[in-house]
Simulated assay, not measured.
Amino acid sequence: MWLLLGLLSAAIPLAAATDLIYVTNRGGTTIDVIDARTNKVVQSIGNIESPEVVRFSRDGRLLYIFSREEENALIVMDRKSGKTVKKVPLSGWANEAQTTKDGKLILVCIRNTGTKAEDAGALDIIDATTLEKVKSIPVRRGLHDLAVTADGKYVAAGAPGGRFLVVFDLQKMEAAWEVQYDSGVNPIAIENNPDGSGRRIFVNLGALNSFSVVDFAKRAEVARIKAPDEPTGFGAGRGCESNAHGIGISPDQKTLWVNSRPSNSVFAYSLPDIKLLGHVSLPEQIVPGKPSRSGNPAWITFTPDSKTVYVSSCGVKMVTAIDVQKMKEVARIPVGEMPDRISTLSLP
């Protein structure tokens, strides 16, 4: 049965756009789509309760949508018509997903399988051709975020409750190794070698306002870098995301971008030397009669040419577009309630 979930409204024809930024508004029922050429919202997909994440088929024809309403299913939607093609059963509540570069596999972080009192998790693997789950690899605690090597051979995922990073071998379809931490882990980014193999993993350590550097070959943490103390004045504690939440590597592998809630900024580092380049301040929460608060930077994505980085701020209903080379804000884009994960679709 075809089900029309997406109520589409476009101010600009989507066929004319090349790079589209999808924004899941976790506090509402919509997914906003930004045209990266104009930095305007050109489409809103509605009637999806608390959407978590959107990923894409390799040809851009299908959207893979996960929401808190459909906790145990992947919604496969036709991008142009907004019709649901299929709902793929999952082993539990999906908290994040990625696809391999060749588009053959959809990899899903399961935050809670519901099999134990604590949050037992899994990595669900879905064949993108048949849209069937082919494997579920159990882990002892729930998984929150993941990243895939460019060669599609490994995926790294973080377990906040278990305070560990786990790396899966996708050829053997099994867990390969772990790194244990003293703090909960949040978003993850992988730096790749020229052949597409993993070189280093960068891991947000939320409560510590820091990120960890894991050497892929050594299978161990080799450095830990705390966010700069300035700017300051936006408070610690928790908002709609943790202190350090949101990390990304530009597609050209030349810069690393890391969010900081206490600084209400995104910091940029050069790669491979991890040298601090500077920061860009992000939208603040204006509180009448009180000092401004952090807008709670949440997630990061890039245009494929590495010229623009986008940062969602879940506390202020805003996505900020930043010129990577100039390290300057170029647009603040109003979106829906509690914007969370953002992802880029590049159309031919």
Rank of each mutant, 00 (worst) to 15 (best):
I342F: 06
T38A: 06
E69Y: 15
N204T: 06
L282C: 07
I48D: 02
V148W: 06
V287F: 00
A10I: 14
L74G: 07
V316I: 08
P228Q: 05
T99G: 05
G142W: 09
M77I: 11
G184L: 09
R58D: 14
V316R: 08
R261K: 01
A220G: 11
V335W: 00
K135M: 14
V88K: 12
C314E: 10
D340W: 10
L3T: 15
D273F: 09
V76M: 06
V134R: 15
L143Q: 02
K153L: 09
F216L: 07
V23S: 07
N95R: 15
I342A: 04
F216T: 10
A16W: 15
N204F: 06
A11P: 01
S292I: 00
L3I: 15
I225Y: 09
A122M: 03
R37Q: 13
V280E: 02
G28N: 08
A10C: 15
S183C: 12
S44L: 12
Y269L: 02
D145E: 15
W177V: 07
L105G: 05
V108T: 06
M318Q: 03
V258A: 10
I137G: 02
A73N: 11
V203I: 04
G196D: 01
S250P: 01
I342D: 05
S210C: 12
M327R: 02
N243K: 11
A236F: 08
